[in-house]
């Protein structure tokens, strides 16, 4: 079930993807839930910047909290990690 809170979280994450793509001159693929992050047009450094910015904005870093977290494959997986950590 998607709540209003979850929707806004997804929106903030998508905004951050767009901002980092803009700053680093990358072309962003349409951000659908099943988009693989590796196909998003952003490289791993850009994804690291997104994680750092989201930590500033949301106060959480789900990747530090979990010991064995594999990096998420799709955008939906990525958003879910933040929803679970919120």
């Amino acid at each position: 079930m998607t709540t209003a809170h979850d929707t806004s979280l997804r929106t903030r994450i998508v905004e951050e993807f767009a901002r980092v793509a803009r700053e680093h001159g990358k072309t962003l693929a349409p951000l659908t839930d099943d988009l693989a992050l590796l196909d998003s047009g952003l490289d791993s450094l850009c994804l690291a910047i997104i994680v750092a910015r989201l930590e500033d904005r949301l106060g959480v870093d789900p990747f530090s909290a979990a010991d064995d977290a594999d990096f998420p494959v799709t955008l939906a997986d990525f958003v879910r990690l933040y929803e679970d950590a919120a």
């Binding site: 450094l45 690291a48 910047i49 994680v51 750092a52 910015r53 500033d56």
Partner: peptide
């Protein structure tokens, strides 16, 4: 690791 990603951001 944690400082450099903040620097990159």
């Amino acid at each position: 690791k944690y400082v450099v990603r903040a620097m990159m951001a």
